[in-house]
Design a protein around this nucleic acid. Structure first.
Lengths: 382, 382
DNA sequence: TAGTCCTCTGTAAGCGCTTACACCGAGCCC
DNA sequence: GGGCTCGGTGTAAGCGCTTACAGAGGACTA
């Protein structure tokens, strides 16, 4: 029985055992709760733990139990340039809020969230899948951080949840929002409520599943409601404010008739669009209506306040973790896909009066989670 | 030599060794690089690794090497309420950007970032320091996530870096920005350049070291430059947009003379202030100038664009990690304190014309980091 | 009083990896 | 040709924990 193993100041279970005059097994049992321990013994162990400031080494626990209690979340995290509005700024609010939701829920379940980035860390590249996979019990992959065909081999090793992805994976669970329902609501509001006919959709990067879903749904909804939507290629941007501002500025130079409503695939682009419009001397919403997607915190404070689709970003992250945890605990999943509802937030940029509020919720067959999560993580059966 | 140990599909080093017809030691050596291996052997091992999709178990490596290659970052992460602008929204941009910087730099050094929250996870509470400490090799603590007296016991177990804290710790390294220099620059601009005399400072939560430092520095600078600053208590808010809006609204009701410039301890509050001002029919900057702190992405897109202090948030996170990594690698630290420079970003909310730009940089004796970090993480000798 | 159960605790075998040390054989020198 | 050197590989100990199994007493029962 080797006592006082590590030379470093860090106490191990052996130190505690020695100090308490028991075996390491007893210390472990006291700390883990199961098995009955005589109160006197327990107290001695606890005292030793307290005095030494002992904290179990998670690596040893992980090795021994086969569970590290760490979940990984992979997102794009380049060290973007000095331009505060460079291409990746867009991800900021979305990914960060998702991360917060994920962290929050992981914590609730006794897991920690490991942040992995596809920027530098090579996930799924090379022979070793970037090693980081060895650090986690499960993985959440954000939209587009790894190519479709890379998912399967990764999923072979750890449970994987795809977030906001295209939802076409046999090997992983997908969590996303109801883009189509949201766009339908927005189109209805614009066309039916405000009587607008000509619209344009400012898209994010064309290869994003979310962007595609929003674009297609909006185009279709507007058309079915009797309106028109300008050709997507001419209004395609890159998720960023400056990018959207650039596109809008260019379109404004066209001599053709301008759209009555410009809908953007995220709020950042809506901000950029409004900026470009203002610069060109056009008033929002009097001359052109603008709407966004996401409902980032500042949207309510723009002038005019932005009409947008509220996306449950925190819930998205929380739901991804929920699914992973269930899988790790052996709970059968209801489905391979979780779709969360969105909500139309009507403010003034669409032409409504101040004080107007949420009009609709793109609800799906949903149910509250059984446990203590305060959120409404709802699921649809695929 | 137990082969095929784990029943689960996950391959271990034993599987690889068996498949390649070598011992596990050889596999380990091939994977870790050191020690010379015959090319033919190496190729066989690599082939086996590839075929099996082997990834080393990080828990085992961590246990064996005594280094988990995981750094923890503790921040406040409550599941805030449905009000998208509730009290914690403020932290969003700051903490998230810091997190990104930290993650980025950790990744560069071959570490991963574990996100820990002070909301649910109990850090420094109870006998066990919340266990999570056992998962990491080092810890970054954001402003106010743990009480002062709790730092020392934690630091006894793992290296700790305090971020944006008060900087008064014997046991940990502190990383923060040059609040005083920034406020001096801003005061100069307002008082000297714009000739404003009466100012007010909308503060964040009063117990935040950053808030305190900014307030004190601003008050002193204004006074020394011949201006006045309203009593802090009357303008104290809570870091949030609605909080600041509320305070400003209330002050506007006062019959006394209004300040010519309102400086806020962060951009979110500046947005709230501008909103309240606009609602009250006051024009910014014609009637009142407004300035913020942080330079969050949307600040450039507000109307009018916000004059603010650019805080190197990403660099803050990166610097914290840098310090931790150095410490773990046994590199001696230059000092117990790292102070990063800020920059005054002049836009229109202070009364300047569009197109004006950064005027000054609160620079400190600094030097570029020797290695490949693209950022200018500068240090001062305390 | 002996036998039977519990209750509580110790012993020891892993978990999957790294690495000090031992060892083997080939090439070399004299 | 025997002894050396040394490159390349295997053996085995140990990292700090969990947990199956065993065992020592004490409390009961008959």
């Amino acid at each position: 029985m080797p006592a006082q193993r590590t030379a470093e100041g860090v106490p191990t279970i052996y130190h505690v055992a020695t100090a308490a005059g028991v075996s390491i097994a007893t210390v472990s049992r006291v700390l883990n709760g199961h098995a009955k321990i005589r109160p006197a013994t327990e107290e001695r162990v606890l005292a030793a733990v307290r005095e030494l400031g002992y904290v179990p080494n998670a690596a040893a626990q992980g090795l021994s139990k086969g569970l590290k209690r760490i979940l990984g979340l992979v997102f794009a995290n380049p060290w973007w340039h000095d331009d505060p509005l460079s291409i990746e700024e867009t991800n900021l609010l979305f990914a960060d809020t998702v991360i917060r939701g994920a962290q929050w829920n992981a914590d609730r379940h006794g897991y920690s969230l490991l942040l992995l980035s596809s920027g530098v860390t090579r996930i799924g590249h090379g022979a070793l899948f970037g090693d980081v996979i060895g650090k986690v019990d499960g993985l959440v992959l954000l939209d587009r951080v790894v190519r479709q065909e890379r998912v399967a081999p990764i999923a072979k090793r750890v449970p994987v949840v795809l977030l906001a992805g295209s939802g076409r994976s046999r090997s992983a669970v997908t969590v996303r929002v109801d883009n189509a329902g949201a766009m339908w609501l927005l189109a209805e509001h614009l066309v039916l409520h405000h009587g607008m006919r000509r619209t344009a959709f400012v898209g994010g990067l064309p290869d994003s599943p979310d962007n595609l879903a929003r674009l297609e749904a909006f185009e279709r909804a507007v058309r079915e409601l009797g309106g028109t939507c300008e050709p997507a290629e001419r209004w395609s941007a890159d998720w960023t404010s400056p990018g959207a501002a650039r596109v809008v500025r260019r379109r404004l130079e066209d001599k053709r008739r301008q759209p009555e409503a410009i809908v953007c695939a995220n709020d950042q682009m809506a901000i950029g669009a409004m900026h470009a419009l203002a610069t060109a001397g056009l008033r929002v919403p009097d001359d052109v209506a603008v709407a966004g997607f996401d409902d980032i915190p500042v949207s309510a404070y723009l002038s005019p306040p932005l009409t947008t689709i509220r996306q449950p970003m925190r819930e998205l992250g929380a739901a991804a973790v929920e699914s992973l945890v269930k899988r790790l605990e052996g709970v059968a999943l209801d489905s391979r896909e979780v779709v969360l509802p969105t909500k139309l937030i009507v403010r003034e940029s669409c032409g409504c009066q101040a004080g107007a509020s949420e009009v609709g919720e793109a609800t799906l067959p949903s149910r509250m989670l059984a446990d203590g999560a305060r959120s409404a993580l709802s699921e649809t059966v695929a």
